[in-house]
């Protein structure tokens, strides 16, 4: 199933950030979002994940098929790596976490408390979480923060495997992920021109 996004406009705190965001993603494809800080990458991903409503435009995609990977990994420091992953798998109705552990080289750490992991190891665990959601579309926000080169390669490998299985990914990142086949969407030119906030917008600009 294709993911179609048409003429999307997203806002944060009542102020429009991006407008005219359009793209189509077919199974097996990835899209990389680029843009300076504060350009609205996170807001766009949150809209795609269904956490907030876009101000305008269409998202032609079932949000139930999307898994969101935010800055924060959603890990509990008092639980082990296995327990954390098992929990997220259970929430998504799955139980097999072995492939995720293997893909991100976490097997040796499986009984370690998440609170004892290094920043990079936590990040790997957070990314492994994407695999146990069993969802077709990965929405990833700066996934490679605090990863070393070897881990970035692991991540690229996991994304490639996900795409090969008919999955899709939208990734906001600044670095080169080693995914040359992925399309790139530069958000810079899509900065919203409209300078109204929602309040004014609700009255067709008649208010200001």
């Amino acid at each position: 199933m294709d993911m179609r996004v048409k003429d999307l406009c997203v806002a944060r705190g009542g102020v429009a950030l991006l407008e005219g965001v359009s793209f189509t993603l077919a199974p097996g494809q990835a899209l990389i979002l680029r843009g300076p800080n504060g350009s609205g990458k996170t807001t766009l991903l949150r809209c795609l994940a269904g956490l907030q409503d876009p101000r305008g435009g269409e998202i032609g995609f079932d949000r139930e098929l999307a898994a969101y990977g935010a800055h924060a990994d959603g890990l509990k420091a008092q639980m082990s790596v296995t327990e954390n992953l098992t929990f997220w798998a259970a929430v998504h109705g799955l139980s097999d976490i072995a492939p995720a552990l293997a893909a991100f080289d976490l097997e040796a750490l499986r009984d370690r408390q998440a609170g004892m992991l290094s920043a990079g190891q936590k990040r790997r665990l957070g990314l492994a979480r994407m695999m146990v959601t069993g969802r077709a579309l990965w929405l990833l926000d700066e996934p490679t923060v605090s990863l070393d080169a070897a881990s970035v390669a692991l991540f690229a490998e996991a994304v490639r495997a996900h795409l090969a299985g008919g999955g899709m990914a939208v990734i906001a990142t600044h670095i080169d992920l080693g995914l040359p086949e992925a399309a790139v969407l530069d958000l810079g030119p899509l900065k919203a021109r409209a300078e109204m906030d929602d309040f004014d917008d609700a009255f067709g600009g008649a208010f200001l």
Partner: peptide, 9 residues
Amino acid sequence: RRMRALVAR
């Protein structure tokens, strides 16, 4: 509210 909107603009 209007003031805040103007400041934001």
